[in-house]
Design a protein around this nucleic acid. Structure first.
Lengths: 215, 215
DNA sequence: CCGCGGCTTGAACACCCGTTTAGTCTTTTG
DNA sequence: CAAAAGACTAAACGGGTGTTCAAGCCGCGG
């Protein structure tokens, strides 16, 4: 039962089952529950990954690898960091991966920092393109703006994520993404088209004070 | 050792110790650790609160009560929902409470929904004031805009929160709030003063399509 | 054919959790 | 002042956790 033409190696099967369970139940999912899903014993997980932490690490590595590989073909059509997640979630079979990422973002940690950093980098690129093509206005600090917009998008996504604890319904995820996008579309478009502040006195005041301190 | 002029009732002392521990260690903090902090036995917590869930409920209730009571005097100077949390964190002794709220927002749940709802309601009020006084531009959907801005503010706050898991340093919280505010000030001001999108074609297109579907 | 080395298992271990219980001490009350 | 009531503790219970361990199963090379 080792050389399986049907699917993949046992170790990979365990890893995938873990990602699915972590996405559904949260990152505190049990080793035993994962073992049951993968149809193996709990001890085997220890044999292959050394410890629970090792399994988590393997999941993190795999997710990052998949994202890295998918990025090039996913970059083209999308425009925002969260849009990439949303788009990815539509793809069949990718929902568990997206769920895992969401749970990681929710919990914080090393992978979170890496992911956010990558998305900020992507955002910088997109914004630059927009500025170059004339659809977006330039910023005094492109990096800071990219980070702010990324934080806004991801943060509000997390805050609105259904089920803080209890099982996340991965089948319903694509639909939820769509509904969420539609819900925020009008206010977002409005906010980005018509200035919230009617005059620039606040901005001017800040720029003045900043200039005084660092002339 | 029952009637204590020195401080407060034992039950309240346990509750405060619990809020502190929950803020520091996260909402999965142990009953035993809380009991140790409060200088009582674990059994006494059961005696007073029935169960761990009862203790959590008591913490939630107390936090909501404090926020409700503090709101009237805190509303005046502040302008944004997250600013209220930041301002509150500066006040001596309120850091544990703010930390508890942050952990609740992070974990989701009933209290979270109530808190966010309250902040959205406040935001509506503030924005209306701004519109009335002419400093803010009106929106096609004031409620949706208020929710979006609240989600943006709270979400990016959570995403940038130090230490997703491990102990949250409550003493460092005020300083962290200040640093965070300063860091996002310029891009936020810029975003709210100068439109990100250079023309209204996207907004117009959306308004057109929306009008066609619901004439 | 045997034996070796991998994958795999199931039971056991040690720990930590929330909760229960029985009992002691203190305060209040009739 | 005695008795009832409540505050409080220490120890134990039962269940769940990650991890370890000794023993099986299996295919493969000598």
């Amino acid at each position: 039962m080792r050389s399986r033409a049907d699917d993949q190696t046992t170790k990979a099967r365990i890893r995938d089952a873990a990602i699915l369970r972590f996405a559904q139940d949260g990152l505190e999912a049990t080793v035993r529950s994962i073992a049951a899903d993968a149809g193996v014993s709990a001890g085997l997980i220890m044999h292959h990954f050394g410890s629970r932490a090792g399994l988590r690490q393997a999941c993190d590595d795999h997710v990052q690898a998949v994202i890295r590989d998918s990025k090039s073909e996913l970059m083209a059509p999308t425009g925002a960091p969260s849009a990439m997640l949303a788009h990815l979630a539509q793809l069949e079979g990718y929902a568990p991966l997206v769920g895992y990422v969401l749970r990681c973002l929710q919990a914080g940690g090393v992978l979170t920092a890496h992911l956010v950093e990558g998305m900020v980098a992507d955002a910088v690129e997109y914004l630059d393109q927009g500025v170059a093509s004339g659809t977006l206005s330039p910023s005094r600090d492109e990096a800071a703006r990219a980070r702010l917009l990324t934080d806004f998008a991801l943060g509000s996504l997390l805050l609105n994520l259904p089920a803080g604890k209890d099982p996340l319904d991965l089948d319903a995820l694509p639909g939820w993404f769509a509904a969420y996008s539609e819900r925020i579309l009008l206010p977002t478009l409005e906010l980005f088209t018509e200035p919230l502040l009617t005059d620039s006195s606040l901005l001017d005041a800040y720029l003045d004070s900043a200039e005084r301190t660092t002339p």
